[in-house]
C-alpha cells in the first residue's frame, strides 16, 4: 500500500485565507489556500458541535495573529 504524500502538505496553511476568509496575496501566497465551506450555524454565531463539527469550518476571525500586509483592528 502506497501512502501518497502530498508535496503541498509541508507548506503551512495560510492564516489569512483560513481564518479571515481573505488573503491579498492570492495565487502568489507562499502558504496554502485551503478552500472550505463555513458551517452555517457558526456563521450565525454559535454551533454546539464545536471542533467536531461536520457541517463546515469554524474559522476564527482573530486579530493580532495576521501574517503579511493585512492589518485588522477589532475591539
Amino acid at each position: 500500500v502506497y501512502l501518497h504524500v502530498d508535496p503541498q502538505s509541508k507548506i503551512p496553511e495560510c492564516y489569512n485565507y483560513t481564518n479571515l476568509g481573505f488573503c491579498p496575496d492570492g495565487p502568489n501566497c507562499q502558504r496554502r489556500h485551503i478552500r472550505k465551506a463555513m458551517c452555517p450555524m457558526f456563521l450565525t454565531g454559535f454551533c454546539p458541535n464545536g471542533p467536531k463539527c461536520e457541517l463546515g469550518a469554524h474559522p476564527k476571525f482573530k486579530l493580532g495573529l495576521i501574517q503579511g500586509q493585512l492589518k485588522f483592528k477589532i475591539y
Binding site: F42, L43, T44, G45, F46, C47, P48, G50, P51, H58, K60, F61, K62, I74
Partner: peptide, 18 residues
Amino acid sequence: KPWRLPGADLSDYFNYGF
C-alpha cells in the same frame, strides 16, 4: 455544554467574540 469544560476553546463554538 462542552464549551464549558476545562481546556475548551470558546471560539471553537462561538463566532464574533460571543
